[in-house]
């Protein structure tokens, strides 16, 4: 088992989760819960692949992925912000709609080959032993964008005025409204931003991390994992990065566990009976649940938690 390969792969697949998770963090910090991440990701993956196929330019594809996710998210915005529909149900419908739309529109894409985004090495940094190999060599450029995104979003949320407005509309929209902040418009904006990042995450899958269009298998539930990671991350982009990369690495580790005939000098039961691998495949999902149990206990102790107005519609002129 090669730890460099495991963590390297973890960073790559974790980047997908990272973009989607950060997007959902921004949306939820604005007080809107969008459970449609999976649908938006799949739309992004389909749109990105499709545009790259017809133009030959994967970067245009990424733009299309971003736009597709963003546009789809506006449907959620309209229904939850203006129609004050239940955010949970609307988010679920967005997943159905996004998945269905992507499957219908992407029906002709299966088995096609597109120009993908080639991995690159970062100069100097990639020469550092181990760390360089894991973090800075042979990665999609989007991985490096991810490294930049995390501190930027953290800084934006915690140290800038627009970031403060964002937190205000998610914690106390009535107070923000009195301050002269346009709650409706900002909520639309952050729903849109979250959708764009989810779409982009989908595009990163189909154009860079594991290129190709495999209908619903393209995202295979990663959007839902991102929703879980948001809670694990306690709405903090730094914790989101740790969670995403660890989760990505873990998946790869479990996959590699089935390879060797002996582990630590013992016969590897997974090698003898491959069907035991089904239990391994349960582990990531069980770990998300475990992380939530630990996370919610911590949240209770430290009084950290969800944005206070998360999931509640804002109606101008009412007391919250």
């Amino acid at each position: 088992m090669n730890w460099i390969i495991i963590f390297h792969a973890g960073i790559a697949t974790g980047t997908v989760l990272l973009f989607a998770t950060i997007g959902e963090i921004l949306t939820e910090r604005a007080g809107i819960l969008n459970l449609g991440v999976e649908g938006m990701m799949l739309m992004g993956a389909m749109a990105g692949f499709s545009v790259s196929l017809s133009t030959g330019n994967p970067w245009l594809g990424l733009m299309a992925a971003l736009a597709a996710g963003g546009l789809l998210s506006l449907a959620h915005g309209l229904v939850t912000i203006h129609f004050q529909a239940d955010q949970v149900v609307s988010g679920l419908s967005l997943t159905f709609l996004g998945t269905g739309l992507a499957l219908v529109l992407g029906d002709s894409l299966s088995g096609k080959q597109v120009t993908t985004i080639a991995p690159i090495d970062l100069p100097i940094l990639s020469d550092i032993p181990f760390v360089g190999d894991v973090f800075f060599a042979d990665h999609s450029p989007l991985v490096y964008v991810g490294y930049l995104l995390v501190p930027l979003v953290w800084y934006f949320l915690n140290r800038t005025r627009p970031g403060m407005h964002l937190r205000a509309i998610g914690e106390k929209p009535q107070a923000a409204d009195v301050m002269g902040i346009n709650v409706y418009r900002l909520r639309y904006f952050y729903v849109f931003v979250g959708g764009c990042l989810a779409g982009l995450a989908g595009g990163i899958i189909s154009l860079s991390v594991s290129p190709g269009w495999y209908s619903a298998q393209t995202t295979s539930g990663q959007g839902w994992i991102a929703v879980g990671l948001v809670i694990f991350a306690q709405w903090n982009p730094l914790r989101a990065a740790v969670g995403s990369y660890l989760f990505g690495s873990l998946r790869r580790f479990l996959l590699d566990l089935q390879g060797p005939a002996t582990l630590l000098g013992f016969t590897n039961p997974l090698y003898v009976n491959a069907n035991l691998g089904f239990f391994l495949q349960m582990l990531p999902y069980l770990l998300i649940i475990l992380a939530l149990v630990i996370g919610s206990r911590q949240a209770k102790r430290k009084r950290l938690g969800a944005p206070a107005a998360l999931g509640l519609p804002f109606i101008r002129g009412t007391k919250g």
């Binding site: 129609f83 609307s90 269905g100 029906d107 209908s215």
Partner: peptide, 26 residues
């Protein structure tokens, strides 16, 4: 009916239309 996602898309549209139409009741 091909493509396979068609009924899923229809389900998504139906659910969206239902929750949007609630606004007409309120």
């Amino acid at each position: 009916i091909q493509p396979a996602g068609l009924s899923q898309m229809l389900q998504g549209f139906i659910l969206f239309a239902i929750i949007s139409s609630d606004v007409l009741l309120r």
